[in-house]
Simulated assay, not measured.
Amino acid sequence: MSDRRGVLVTGASRGIGRATAMAFAEKGYRVAVHYGSRREDADETLARLPGTGHAVFGGDLADPDAARGLVADAVDQLGQVDVLVNNAAVAPGQGNLHPLDTASWDGWTAAWRSMIDVNLLGAVNVTWAVAQHLVDRGAPGSIVNVGSRGAFRGEPDYPAYGATKAALHAFGQSAAVALAPYRISVTSVAPGFVATERQTAKLAGTEGDAVRDQSPFGRVGTPEEIASAIIYLASPEAAWSSGAVVDLNGASYLR
């Protein structure tokens, strides 16, 4: 085992995942950068990471064997995985709109299948494999799930997204109870709108002001702000937060 802690960040090609990978590397972690399809972006994330010992891994988390294999490869390359950040997700977009009243049958079923397979089951399966690794080592660790504000306020145009993020939060709380005896904490963050690369055009267009006005701060969040919360929740000092779902939405939605 290495003296340096290892972290696996799924969906680390861009956005919150990239910012999180960079924040962990700045803390001295060895980082496993996972990507689903954007290899060039993942390589760019890797190139930006300070320090050494980092690696890139591809894999479709909709495939349970790929999810389990990702963890095995990360452990082999890094020496150990102490922290898991479940960030990978099929995100809402024009190609997977599925409002209940107007979606076609094929569009409806495809959206639910893809989001359940990655957003929920992908995270569940990676979590299982990392938990087994930590328990077998007898080592403490942390798991942080990246959920969404949409789990609470609803996503009428993307109900599968809201539902899978709500399920991820619930799974995280079940895992928190199950893994506490092994000194493994499990928490979730629920970001609101974040200024990732994927949202650049929307924020610059006619909808930009309306999106910013959702928060009384008059702006949207940044990937780095989400990453800073993840870093804290993954730290040993935050172990007593296990089971929490932390809202990170600039007071744009209160519950």
Rank of each mutant, 00 (worst) to 15 (best):
R5P: 04
V7Q: 07
T10K: 06
A12E: 13
S13Q: 11
S13D: 04
I16N: 00
I16Q: 02
M22H: 10
A25M: 11
Y29K: 02
Y29N: 10
Y29D: 02
V31L: 09
Y35I: 01
S37W: 11
R38C: 05
E40H: 06
E44R: 13
T45K: 06
A47Y: 03
A47E: 12
R48N: 02
L49E: 06
P50G: 15
G51F: 01
G51C: 02
G58Q: 10
L70V: 10
V71L: 13
D73L: 12
L78P: 02
V83K: 11
V83F: 11
N86G: 05
N86Q: 11
A91P: 01
G93A: 15
P99F: 09
W108C: 01
A110P: 04
A111L: 07
A111N: 12
M115S: 13
M115G: 01
I116F: 08
N119F: 08
G122M: 03
V124R: 06
A131P: 01
D136F: 09
R137N: 03
A139L: 09
V144T: 15
S148V: 07
G150N: 08
F152D: 03
P156F: 03
D157P: 14
Y158M: 10
Y158C: 00
H169T: 12
H169R: 03
F171H: 05
A176F: 09
A178W: 02
P181R: 07
S185I: 00
S185Q: 04
S188C: 07
S188T: 07
Q199P: 04
A201Q: 12
K202M: 13
G205Y: 08
A210D: 13
Q214A: 12
R219C: 10
P223A: 05
E225C: 07
I226R: 11
A234C: 07
A234H: 06
P236R: 08
A238H: 15
S242D: 14
A244C: 11
V245W: 01
G250Q: 00
A251F: 03
S252F: 12
S252E: 15
Y253V: 00
L254W: 05
L254C: 14
R255E: 12
